[in-house]
Amino acid sequence: MTISTMRPAPAATPAGNIARPRAWQSRTFINAARVLICVAFLALWEIASRQGWVEETLFGRPSGVWTSMLEYLPSERSLESLRATGAAVGVSFVIGSISGTLAGLILGLSPTLNSIFGPFLAPINSVPRIALAPLFIAWFGLTMTAKVVLAVSIVFFILTENARSAVRSVDADLMTMARVVGLKRASLLLKVVLPSAVPTMFAGLRLTFVYALLGVVASEMVAATGGLGQDIVLYSSSYQINTVFAILVELMAVAIVMNWLFNAAERRLLVWQVS
């Protein structure tokens, strides 16, 4: 047995010896259960489709989705759509996060502005934003701007609320300490308020990416010259359901990759949160 310098050697009690294999067993069990559920679901779907229990033209089938992925995903059209959607999501994420965070910080720091603008936030945020898509498209035409405006209108409010509460929930003891130590205004903001808001804001950003994607795809589905949302509408209206599923898988993959990136960034930025 090697001795780890990092953690104390586990006490050689019977309980300690039993606890470890059990935890290991349950983890494998859980993973196996997950895989099994996925496989069972796909198999059932495949069989149901092949046996004619469900209409293939409406519900597709896993093997068909696989073939469509191989055909559609590398195609010029698909890449073009991915580029269009990706660009719109990227732009709305950046614009929405920066403006939303700034607005939230300002509201959180200024009681006056907060009491003026605060009451507007909830009502505006309760408008189902997708319902505004036709309006934005009428105003901005079939452009990237229309998509971005819709996505930003969702992202902005989420992050405003998020940043506002992050700033307001700074630990009271830390604030007292900071004031006694002599921090004021800008230095108080930079050295205490903003850093303590970072974890909350990070959680908000992660959520925000998914909403930016949602806004852009929804806007494209209403009307656009291209993009994954447009493709979904086109393929489903021509009953190429397998391709629709292929696109959904693609969207899911994009979201998962982004989540990984966020996790990695979070681990690097917030080292101090790990004990």
Binding site: D171, R179, V180, K191
Partner: peptide, 20 residues
């Protein structure tokens, strides 16, 4: 008056900045 640079104030809770 606040802040007084000639005062050191220590609290029951450490009030350390966790990111530093």
């Amino acid at each position: 008056e606040l802040p007084n640079m000639d005062i050191g104030y220590m609290f029951a809770r450490d009030a350390l900045l966790p990111w530093r």
